[in-house]
Amino acid sequence: MVGLPERLDPADDSLPVWTERYLDLAVRGVRSAEVTAKISRHLERFGAWITGGLGHDRLSAVTPREITAWRDHLAAAGNCGRDNMPAPMAPATVNNHLAHL
């Protein structure tokens, strides 16, 4: 895993902190409220999945391997079906999630 530089506050390595900063700097006020909400949902979904899988929300621990695993998860069981069972997401929806990430 990647260590944190001395000057970086450990709170800055948190996915929720990064998500809010990203939304503030690049999304809010630039994209419509609907698109902003969608991007936020997708990033929160990723954060919850990472936290559930790794047991923490450190951004520096996220590697291409985790992104690939998330993509595979979304494609296999990213939706909740009518019976509350995991269901696959459509390829375009998976790509949309990846683009937002």
Score class of each variant (00 low, 15 high):
residue 1 M to G: 13
residue 1 M to Y: 12
residue 2 V to A: 11
residue 3 G to E: 15
residue 3 G to N: 12
residue 5 P to G: 08
residue 8 L to T: 13
residue 10 P to Q: 02
residue 12 D to R: 11
residue 12 D to I: 01
residue 12 D to M: 11
residue 12 D to A: 15
residue 13 D to S: 15
residue 14 S to T: 10
residue 15 L to Y: 02
residue 15 L to H: 03
residue 16 P to L: 05
residue 18 W to F: 15
residue 19 T to L: 14
residue 19 T to C: 13
residue 20 E to G: 13
residue 21 R to P: 02
residue 21 R to G: 15
residue 21 R to N: 14
residue 22 Y to D: 11
residue 23 L to T: 09
residue 23 L to D: 07
residue 25 L to E: 15
residue 25 L to W: 09
residue 26 A to K: 14
residue 27 V to K: 13
residue 28 R to A: 13
residue 29 G to E: 11
residue 30 V to I: 15
residue 30 V to N: 10
residue 30 V to C: 06
residue 31 R to P: 03
residue 31 R to Y: 12
residue 31 R to S: 14
residue 32 S to P: 06
residue 33 A to K: 12
residue 34 E to I: 14
residue 36 T to F: 06
residue 36 T to P: 02
residue 37 A to I: 09
residue 39 I to V: 15
residue 39 I to P: 00
residue 39 I to H: 08
residue 42 H to R: 14
residue 42 H to F: 09
residue 42 H to M: 12
residue 44 E to C: 06
residue 44 E to N: 11
residue 45 R to N: 04
residue 46 F to V: 04
residue 46 F to P: 00
residue 46 F to T: 01
residue 47 G to P: 04
residue 47 G to N: 09
residue 48 A to H: 14
residue 48 A to E: 12
residue 48 A to T: 09
residue 48 A to Q: 14
residue 49 W to K: 01
residue 49 W to Y: 13
residue 50 I to H: 06
residue 50 I to C: 05
residue 50 I to K: 02
residue 51 T to H: 10
residue 52 G to P: 06
residue 52 G to E: 11
residue 52 G to Q: 11
residue 53 G to N: 13
residue 54 L to S: 09
residue 54 L to H: 07
residue 55 G to E: 09
residue 55 G to K: 06
residue 55 G to S: 10
residue 56 H to T: 05
residue 58 R to I: 08
residue 59 L to N: 02
residue 59 L to E: 05
residue 59 L to P: 08
residue 59 L to I: 13
residue 60 S to F: 01
residue 61 A to Q: 10
residue 62 V to N: 02
residue 63 T to L: 12
residue 63 T to D: 07
residue 64 P to A: 10
residue 64 P to I: 04
residue 65 R to W: 08
residue 66 E to R: 00
residue 67 I to K: 03
residue 68 T to P: 01
residue 68 T to R: 12
residue 68 T to Y: 10
residue 70 W to C: 00
residue 70 W to D: 00
residue 70 W to F: 15
residue 70 W to L: 07
residue 70 W to R: 04
residue 72 D to K: 07
residue 73 H to D: 03
residue 74 L to D: 00
residue 75 A to S: 07
residue 77 A to Y: 01
residue 77 A to P: 00
residue 78 G to T: 01
residue 78 G to V: 01
residue 80 C to Q: 09
residue 80 C to E: 10
residue 81 G to N: 07
residue 81 G to F: 01
residue 81 G to E: 02
residue 82 R to C: 01
residue 82 R to K: 03
residue 82 R to I: 04
residue 83 D to W: 00
residue 83 D to Y: 03
residue 85 M to C: 08
residue 85 M to W: 02
residue 85 M to Y: 07
residue 86 P to K: 03
residue 86 P to G: 05
residue 86 P to Y: 05
residue 87 A to M: 05
residue 87 A to T: 07
residue 88 P to C: 03
residue 88 P to I: 03
residue 90 A to N: 01
residue 91 P to Y: 06
residue 91 P to G: 06
residue 92 A to G: 05
residue 92 A to R: 10
residue 94 V to H: 00
residue 94 V to S: 01
residue 94 V to Q: 00
residue 95 N to E: 08
residue 95 N to I: 06
residue 96 N to Y: 07
residue 97 H to C: 10
residue 97 H to Q: 06
residue 98 L to Q: 07
residue 98 L to N: 03
residue 99 A to M: 14
residue 99 A to L: 12
residue 100 H to N: 15
residue 100 H to D: 13
residue 100 H to M: 12
